[in-house]
């Protein structure tokens, strides 16, 4: 019993390491590669290294590396939460894990319906990665969601999912849906179809990025203000930006925590609405019924 519990603890420790080490790794990389400089720095993701490729050099940026770190970290979190599950929940982490899964199922059931219950893991995954990517800025790291490329990748993935759902009754019906309500609307429909991933990517990126830019601007403004007001203090005291302490943290509650959670929720919600709205439910049910009917007749005949 004792050995088993020791093993349990060791595995627990391993999972915690998987969870925390990537974040420390990302911090170390940032410290190693950071360019020291004075004043306001509003820049995109840093390029760590580039790999020469035939068509174009492939840059590995901070955003890419951080998003991989988030993926590994969320994986570790999931392993940790589901470690040692019992039929009757008695640990805190199992209660939390069950609550998360129940919430995801409820959300998908409410917004998409019973039929789409298979999408629950995808929705949960996209919500988790979006949430933790945005919250990464709380650790002082570059949030992967404030890089357009990362979010655009997710948006393209979701767009493929939406198109797959629309093509469920054959590509012909999908093509026909562009000519509705009248064929003249064809270019409009194509544009609005293409606008879906672009607007999803821009919405997420724009919200997180604008928060980051405003935070940097306000903190730099506060430091110059404190130099103006408190600059007369003697020695080192005059150089410390006192006004910069605390005030940007209050703003960070809105821009990082609230906005990050809201954008994760909205991204998942829009995915659900687009997928369930694009699915040709009536046609699918009609075909299913039509498929079943001949089979029924045959069986009846066999019986006779």
């Amino acid at each position: 019993m004792n050995a088993q519990s020791r093993r349990f603890r060791a595995v627990d420790f391993l999972y915690l390491c998987i969870m925390i080490l990537p974040l420390i790794c990302a911090m170390a990389l940032k410290v190693c590669f950071s360019v020291s400089g004075e004043g306001v720095q509003i820049a995109g993701a840093q390029i760590y290294f580039t790999i020469p490729m035939p068509l174009m050099d492939m840059p590995f940026t901070e955003a890419q590396v951080n998003s991989w770190m988030v993926i590994i970290s969320v994986w570790g979190l999931c392993l940790f939460m589901t470690h040692g599950l019992k039929v009757k929940a008695d640990t805190r982490r199992q209660h939390l894990a069950e609550w998360c899964v129940t919430m995801c199922k409820k959300l998908v059931n409410e917004n998409m319906g019973e039929f789409f219950a298979g999408y629950t893991p995808f929705i949960g995954a996209i919500m988790a990665i979006s949430l933790f990517s945005s919250l990464m800025s709380l650790l002082g790291l570059f949030a992967p969601t404030s890089d357009l490329n990362v979010v655009a990748g997710w948006a393209i993935l979701v767009f493929a999912l939406i198109t797959a759902a629309k093509c469920r009754c054959g590509p012909l019906l999908y093509m026909k849906s562009f000519c509705e309500p009248i064929p003249v609307m064809l270019p409009m429909n194509i544009i609005s179809e293409l606008a879906t991933p672009i607007s999803m990517a821009f919405r997420h990126y724009g919200n997180v990025m604008s928060g980051a830019v405003i935070s940097v601007l306000i903190s730099s403004a506060l430091s110059s203000l404190s130099r103006m007001v408190l600059g007369w203090l003697p020695g080192v005291l005059g150089d410390i930006p006192f006004l910069r302490v605390g005030i940007p943290a209050v703003l960070s509650i809105y821009f990082d925590v609230f906005s990050g959670c809201l954008q994760a929720f909205i991204f998942a919600m829009l995915t659900m609405l687009y997928v369930s709205g694009g699915f040709p439910m009536e046609e699918y049910l009609r075909r299913k019924a039509a498929d079943k009917q001949p089979a029924k007749k045959q069986s009846v005949r066999l019986f006779e």
Binding site: F202, G206, S210, I266, M269
Partner: peptide, 12 residues
């Protein structure tokens, strides 16, 4: 919240 998010798109 959904409606606000969609209305926000043009601003973004």
């Amino acid at each position: 919240i959904m409606g606000c998010a969609i209305a926000e798109t043009t601003g973004l």
